[in-house]
Design a protein around this nucleic acid. Sequence first.
RNA 1: GGGCGUGUAGCAUAGCCUGGAUAAUGCACUGGCCUCCUAAGCCAGGGACCGCGGGUUCGAAUCCUGCCGCGCCCGCCA
Length: 580
Amino acid sequence: MRQLIDECAPLIFRAVSDIGITEEQILSLLGPATDTRLADVAMPCHSLAAIFQKPPVDVSEEISGLISTFLEGIALTSSMNGFVNLKADPAWLSARAMKLLPDERLGVSKEKPRKVVVDYSAPNVAKEMHVGHLRSTVIGDSIVRMLEFKGHDVIRENHIGDWGTPFGMLIEHLIDIGEDDFALDKGISDFDQFYKEARSKFDNDEFFANRSRSRVVLLQSEDDDTLRLWRVLVNVSTSYFNEVYDMLGVLLDDRDLMGESAYRHLLPQVVERLEKSGLLEESDGASVVFLGGKWVNRKGEPFPVMIRKGDGGFNYSTSDLACIIDRVERLSCDDLLYVVGTPQKQHFEMVFEVASRAGLMQNWHNAKHVNFGSVLDSNGQMLKSRTGQSVKLVDLLKEAIYRADESISEKNPGLTENDRERVSKMIGIGAVKYADLSTDRSKDYTFDWDKMLSFEGNTAPYLQYSHARICRIFSLSPLSRADVKNANIIIQTEEEENLARCIVNFSEAVDNASSTFHPHKLCTHIHSTSSAFASFYEACPILKSDDHTILKSRLALCDLTARTISTGLGLLGIQSPEEM
RNA sequence: GGGCGUGUAGCAUAGCCUGGAUAAUGCACUGGCCUCCUAAGCCAGGGACCGCGGGUUCGAAUCCUGCCGCGCCCGCCA
């Protein structure tokens, strides 16, 4: 309840300045109440007790008595157990809620724009997309949407794995099976098989392995025919990625592609600049940077960042440094976000450290590894398919849609074929995304079909259902959504009060989620809102209320709730069906 | 061996950054509520030495420290 604190703090200070409490003390003590039944905002007075030489209970009572008239119309004041408790006055809540009625943004402010590069998704060419890419794609998409909503200039970058030594064997395998067949067959089928066949030939066939190695050299020297074959692999892969992105409903498209190949001409420059800054050292024939400090290997010896391998090739640290140069110098970005799994934490720490020391980015650049945990099955193991392979993303999405379709067919047989198909896609995909986004991204997450597709609990279908219910109410209502924009919101019941409180707090939830890149904070808030709505819906007749002003007021709350849910879900990349 | 992370009811999680009251939510469980706007819902209830031990503090799930369990990383893969 940031808004309530902001409004109350100066008034409290005015009320208590006589007894010698400073504004700093008030601001540091005021905070969200832990017990939300008692208060929205609380001020513990235990630390003041020592100063006044009185028990905390007496201090809180005294302060409560002094401030209550100053906060009239804003918050209701009480005291208990040494706490001053402030509960938002229903009149204040309704005034705040009414302000949001004509506001498309539901009170969410825009910030001073920063230019933010978000690096996410990053599938590999000629490889299947799996659940790891799902997390990066879904989390990245949501972060992009939140940052754009907050007014930032966001540049999406899909750093696909489209360069490097594996492409020797992939191109040779492509030649073997014939490129025409490949392009025709591979549309949305099995890349894993293609990759595995290539790998197997590389490992078992010395002649093939030698061809592959020569092919890498040709690729790196940009031989025309080799590049042409390489493009076949890239094009078929990216059109496949696009099909998956389309199915997922994320913002990524071809314009966002910035694969590793895009940085290959910058790699020698990285070496040059590190050399010039004196960071580069030779070690066992390779060029490396030793950072010292906590970065030591098993034997306690310094552990380096590999810049140029002994064979003259570059690897991923070099490529990431080239990316930083490009993003800082060509794009002039302020922030660099990397939506990549937690296992690569150390890698990014080291790369950022090298980039800073080499002056590739400045203090005011904010480079952040937006890490995420692994996807586990119900046994706490990394999620695998029945055959022990990593799960193909398309299969997973298809199953989600299929399962959603089954549920809807059973629960609402009245839907037309067309609507059912459209809605099952929204629900199935929404369920997968929400399950991923609703827990702290930095922790591992447990994948569970039944839970994510359940229409109960903290799931997308539950939230979508709340939204659909409200749309249904308006379809039966004498007043339209537009008609209630000027409504006088009257809060009479506890359920109306709780709902209004959720609606008013939406902007704060968006700010918390976007500033920390933690979408689950937004999920938690939308779920509370939905839950408050369900209670309101049971307790407060809407269309059946006999008083027209109450009807209008409650419909206004419905409108705000629906927009809170759909805007919130929208920021998570999830659609809100109007019926389901 | 070093580094990083993690441990909260039967299960899945939030709260930890920035210390406050009887630790929150969902599933599951128990008991209620459909001639009434979608019961895909609501209401009520039981269930937790917040991994273990120390420390700091008026006050610790939260901060510090030591253990224990689990996971990831530690030179030419990305």
